[in-house]
Design a protein around this nucleic acid. Structure first.
Lengths: 218, 218
DNA sequence: GTCTTTACTTTGATTTTGCTAAATTATCAT
DNA sequence: ATGATAATTTAGCAAAATCAAAGTAAAGAC
């Protein structure tokens, strides 16, 4: 059985690769995501490669093997189902479940996981709007638009917040931009890299970076 | 923060000491309980002593310090609340929750624990009838009698099964001797070390060892 | 009272995961 | 090209938790 550390590495490699849309992930990014020094990441990734979970090319980066990919989806499934459970059944706020899930995902049994899945009615997204892989490893890949691409002056529904940073999430929550809420983008200024929007009757403005992390659907 | 291993050692030392009613626990018992070779237990217990959690006397045994005692009760609280939660909210059978709780007890946050405690209505015993220490470390110490001490031919209520062995628990569950069920002891033969009893209308017989682990109240 | 058995301790090695610091390679501006 | 800067790898070390095997002490057998 893979250790919690191995699972974390595999999960982060998957997430980074997915986020930047490139298969090969640079070691620096891996080290950053795991909060370790680069040398540690190199050592660990070599071990992952030796275990058949990843392909490692020195000075190029790391990518997941088929086996690694399967593991990543399993870990993600655990993480996201737990998040959903904490919100739905334990009264947690959606913006504060990440840390708890981060711990639980490594020790929860398959059996408990499936029981939670059933109780929640087999949800397909977690409280942040992140898709939950099925037990067999499929994931609904809907194409959402971010605040940077979506049309102006239309009422849209927040579908997903693509970030786990507690600070950012609590800002989003306080601004009433939870998944499910309605927004209208009123203005986008590419020179100022700024977006103006209307949510809960309030006028807000966000920078490019933050705006890119909020995904909507019509 | 103590590691999962440290918590396990402290918990086992507490349980053994409680069970045999002696403060000093022999190293062999510790090693057995944790499933490690004796040398490992010696090393670990020395580390516990160095951390101020236990007192260690070579070739005599180990006992908990005040600090160790507090930690033991915290771990036990987590373990037993989780067991109760799994049974009450997740539909687990009381005889099969131990393993899962064994893992979860080391990673659950104080916050989640208190939320579970609240949802369950601050229970004082877990599904096996084991008492749950309060957040401040108090534990209701009711004096129950085992099948070996209780009066004959009276209807008694099963209060607690003082064992975690899955085999034994599932035998108990199949025999209808769950905590809360009713029984009558019909005969006790000390030469044969055997107890005859009536539960769910069925006649059963148990040996001394097994009978000692079933605790009842009137 | 010696001897043997049993319980326990010590020692040295291993695995996993991390670190620091030095060495290497790549990149980019001049 | 060349030299500076940044990213990456290598090498050596450390802590936690384990084991195997050898040594030691205590307890009971005769």
């Amino acid at each position: 059985m893979p250790s919690a550390t191995v699972e974390d590495y595999i999960k982060q490699i998957y997430l980074i690769s997915d986020q930047i849309g490139i298969k090969e992930v640079a070691m620096g990014r891996v080290a950053d995501a795991l909060g370790v020094v680069p040398g540690t990441a190199t050592t660990m990734v070599k071990a992952l490669a030796a275990a058949g979970l990843a392909n490692y090319a020195p000075r190029v980066g790391v990518s997941l093997t088929g086996q690694g990919h399967v593991l990543a989806l399993h870990v993600l499934r655990r993480h996201r189902l737990i998040e959903q459970f904490l919100v739905e059944q334990l009264g947690y706020d959606w913006s504060e479940v990440h840390e708890e899930a981060e711990q639980l995902e490594h020790v929860i049994s398959e059996r408990l996981l499936e029981r939670i899945d059933k109780i929640l009615g087999h949800p397909t997204v977690d409280p942040h709007g992140d898709p939950i892989p099925s037990a067999s490893g499929e994931m609904s890949e809907s194409q959402l638009e971010s605040f940077l691409q979506c049309p102006l002056n239309k009422t849209l529904r927040i579908a997903r917040i693509a970030d786990q940073n507690p600070d950012f999430l609590s800002y989003i929550a306080r601004s009433g931009l939870n998944p499910g809420a309605s927004v209208t983008i009123t203005l986008r200024d590419s020179r100022a890299e700024s977006v103006q929007l209307l949510a809960r009757g309030q006028q807000l403005s966000m920078g490019w970076g933050a705006a890119a992390k909020v995904l909507v659907e019509r």
